[in-house]
């Protein structure tokens, strides 16, 4: 702080701090607090606000799991969507990691600098296009009569076309693609800093290629993997566009459930509660990743 004052003078420093504080408090903290407050209220019409029917309750949170019967493995609708969202986001995260790791390894270490720069550019350019348009593009590619089916039929891999968009396949593919760079860049950054002498030393000591990755590259890239997984999981769990465009009625995402409670059910307290449950899920996942990869916030910030 005193460093800032020394560099920019008291006036500018005060102005910067005030603007930042205004942004944080008015645009982020206050709306969130309003939502928190909402989420503990009963859902009553405006006319009954503050009346005897408007009281604080945990009901909005508890209603997610109400009716769950673990013995018969039956879940209420919203809870089923919630669990499927966790599972789906985790699967998207895992698929992204599997797809990105070899590419990141190639770009960071195997490719010559010029080619690596070229590849990075090729990775980035599609992301200059709006996310909705890119998702629509996948809608077309994956369509029953679309180019993917035509191509696979053409080269004889498929005997009859596949309905990609009727199961979870479309959502998974769309999300892996949509959040690819959020996995790719942390991985490339992390792998880039690995001293290749360590890879050669391991090879010299008798390690086959997969052991080199298991024992040397992946442990070194752990902070990058953690950051990538956190980014992709959080983005996937809170994604709305991809599941609504590429999903089918059987693959509703939890974000869609929240939307429905807010705008179709007109039940803002319930919607707010669910939104905070989703936030809690994401925070929980971040902490889990930090525990699993034994990285601190400082490692991630790097």
């Amino acid at each position: 702080m005193s460093e800032l004052v020394k560099r920019y003078g008291l006036g500018i420093t005060t102005a910067m701090v005030l603007v930042t504080a205004f942004w944080l408090i008015v645009m982020v903290v206050l709306p969130a607090l309003v939502m928190v407050e909402y989420s503990f209220h009963t859902n009553v019409p405006v006319t009954k606000r503050g009346g005897p029917e408007d009281y604080y309750t945990l009901d909005n949170y508890l209603s997610l799991v109400r009716g769950t019967d673990w013995s018969t493995w039956t879940f209420p609708n919203d809870f089923r969507v919630f669990l499927r969202t966790i599972w789906g986001a985790a699967l998207v995260t895992l698929l992204s990691l599997v797809v990105c790791y070899p590419v990141a390894w190639y770009v960071a270490k195997l490719a010559k600098p010029q080619r690596a720069a070229m590849l990075l550019l090729l990775l980035v350019i599609p992301f200059w296009v709006n996310e909705i348009l890119r998702t629509f593009a996948w809608y077309i590619i994956l369509a029953y009569q679309g180019p993917l089916n035509a191509a696979l039929l053409g080269i004889g891999i498929l005997e009859k076309p596949v309905r990609w968009l009727s199961g979870s396949g479309g959502v998974l593919i769309g999300m892996v693609y949509a959040f690819l760079l959020f996995m790719m860049f942390p991985l490339i950054n992390a792998i880039e800093t690995l001293d290749m002498n360590q890879v050669e030393a391991a090879e010299d000591l008798g390690a086959p290629w997969w052991q080199i990755h298991r024992r040397i590259v992946i442990p070194h890239a752990k902070p990058g993997i953690a950051v990538g997984c956190i980014m992709v999981f959080v983005l996937a769990a809170s994604s709305y566009i991809v599941p609504s465009l590429l999903g089918s009625p059987g693959t509703r995402w939890f974000t869609e459930t929240i939307y429905v409670w807010f705008f179709e059910g007109q039940n803002w307290p319930r919607g707010s509660a669910y939104a905070f449950i989703l936030l809690g899920l994401c925070v929980g996942f971040i902490m889990l990743m930090m525990r699993i990869f034994r990285v601190g916030l400082a490692d991630i910030a790097k």
């Binding site: 001293d195 002498n197 360590q198 050669e200 030393a201 391991a202 010299d204 000591l205 008798g206 390690a207 086959p208 052991q211 024992r215 040397i216 442990p219 070194h220």
Partner: peptide
């Protein structure tokens, strides 16, 4: 067995694991 100019020890492993790496492989 090659000893590298910068040694290339594995920083994420203990001293014993470094020494035993070749045996592990």
């Amino acid at each position: 067995a090659l000893i590298f100019q910068n040694l290339a020890l594995f920083p994420m492993m203990s001293v014993a694991d470094n020494i035993a790496f070749g045996l592990e492989m």
